[in-house]
Write a protein that binds this DNA or RNA. Structure first.
Length: 427
RNA sequence: GGAGAGAUGGCCGAGUAGGCUGAAGGCGGUCGCCUGCUAAGCGACUGUACGGGUAUAAAGCCUGUACCGAGGGUUCGAAUCCCUCUCUCUCCGCCA
């Protein structure tokens, strides 16, 4: 959420950003009209309340002195009714203002390139070489099924489309990756591990920006106020909701494993096969609460921390900066990490590292108390996948597949897999 | 699921026959004084949000309103009374 005062003083900037993101900028004018109305009504109501407070005090005094205050009481009864009516109108106005405010996207950072869709994203750097196969290589869903480590079909029976069973070394591989990533980030990159709830309430979803705008992307538990988290970003960022953090604690760095649940509404027919687009997947998420003065440095180091996972796994990837039109609603700047996926002959997103500046912090009211005194300020929140585990499994299967159908296990993972260096068909 | 207790400022903790209590007291924090240094001591200050005025690069300053878990109600007036909800704690039952 943006600062209303900022929108008031620089509406053109907000409108420009909305246009660049393909949204209707007239919302801004609606907002400013309502804001104007609200402020003038607020002045009226506050004057009335002031009067009520003063006269009430007088009534108290008169009564104490044993004098009659009946006419004043009658007068105030009317004033109170008047206040009540105006307060109701005011509440409506505020609700509407808030509704609009929650639907205005973040301003993007000046380094974000202009563009309308993902084709306009700019490649920042590449790492590693895509493997060259001298045999006919397979997509990971075939590899997984032939090795009997992934079962899509039965998942369809037991649950539905876009769910998966991992089996045997497949399940172990998934678990090994989670442990490897968590160990790396907690032991070498200084993140404190969190194991969060996988269901959160709607306030948390509003705090990080999934609600109200993207409610169709989420699974909601019927009859409750609980949602299945689409990412650990939600519970972990909301850890400090409504709190004031001492400045010297910044930056706070958390790494969290969670299952993630996404309805994938509107992506019918996309990536229908394989692990790429599932309703449930595992992810290790990195979340930072940073000082506004250095949050962009923190974004660079967070991205580097995520990249390190791919480097250690020896998976070729590239880093892309998202253009204005492809940027997420809450984000001021985002780098996507894209891993080489032989089956699609292309790089596929495996991590998304963003600086939200104070956009989420304002929604969730996460502040810090400056060391040298002064008012609490909003922190900057950042997060990035470190990494999406299912997609990592897919990338490993595809990039390290052998002609005989086996898959070589990356060296760093072998200790996590009981020393196994290769996944072969078990029988 | 049943029974009971509770929710006040950064923290602890007063405040129930409704009326200067934004909220005593303490701790913590900041500034000043004192001191050879440290400790102690003395004095002052110390919530947030949203308006209005003034000023502005900003801060600030003046002023109003709201906030004692959340939302309603009663009343001229509610932290104090009533209702609903949420959360926490204790006991019982059930359960991984």
């Amino acid at each position: 959420m943006l600062d209303l005062k900022f929108i008031r003083s620089k509406p053109e900037i907000v409108k420009k950003v909305m246009k660049a993101r393909g949204l209707d900028p007239s919302l801004v004018d609606d907002l400013l009209d309502l804001d104007k109305e609200r402020r003038s009504l607020l002045a009226e109501v506050e004057a009335l309340k002031n009067k009520r407070n003063l006269v009430s005090e007088e009534i108290a005094r008169l009564k104490k002195e044993g004098q009659d205050a009946q006419d004043k009481i009658l007068e105030m009864r009317e004033v109170s009714n008047n206040i009540k009516e105006k307060d109701d109108v005011l509440r409506d106005l505020e609700e509407n203002i808030n509704k609009i405010l929650l639907n205005i996207p973040n301003i993007f950072h000046e380094s974000v390139p202009e563009g309308t869709c993902d084709r306009d994203n700019a490649v920042v750097r590449r790492w590693g070489e895509p493997p060259v196969f001298d045999f006919s290589f397979k997509p990971h869903w075939d590899i997984g099924e032939e090795l009997d480590i992934i079962d899509f079909e039965r998942a369809g029976k037991v649950t539905g489309a876009r769910f998966t069973f991992y089996k045997g070394l497949g399940a172990l591989l998934e678990r090994a990756l989670i442990n490897f990533m968590l160990d790396l980030h907690t032991r070498e990159h200084g993140y404190i591990e969190i194991f969060p709830p996988f269901l959160v309430n709607s306030d948390s979803m509003v705090g990080t920006g999934q609600l109200p705008k993207f409610c169709e992307d989420m699974f909601k538990v019927e009859g409750t106020d609980y949602y299945l988290i689409p990412t650990a970003e939600v519970p972990v960022t909301n850890l400090y909701r409504e709190e004031i953090i001492p400045e010297e604690k910044l930056p706070i760095k958390h790494a969290a494993y969670s299952a993630c649940f996404r309805a994938e509404a509107g992506s019918h027919g996309r990536d229908t096969r394989g692990l790429i687009r599932q309703h449930q997947f595992n992810k290790v998420e990195l979340v930072k609460f940073a000082h506004p003065d250095n949050s962009y440095e923190e974004l660079e180091s967070l991205t580097a921390d995520a990249e390190r996972v791919l480097q250690l796994l020896e998976l070729p990837y590239r880093v892309v900066i998202l253009c204005s039109g492809d940027l997420g609603f809450c984000s001021a700047k985002t780098y996507d990490l894209e891993v080489w996926m032989p089956s699609s002959g292309n790089y596929r997103e495996i991590s998304s590292c963003s600086n939200f500046e104070d956009f989420q912090a304002r929604r969730a009211n996460i502040r810090f108390k400056p060391k040298n005194g002064g008012k609490p300020r909003f922190v900057h929140t950042l997060n990035g996948s470190g990494l999406a585990v299912g997609r990592t499994v897919a990338a490993i299967l595809e990039n390290f597949q052998q002609e005989d159908g086996s898959v070589v296990v990356p060296k760093v993972l072998q200790p996590y897999m009981g020393g196994i260096s290769k996944i072969t068909k078990s029988d």
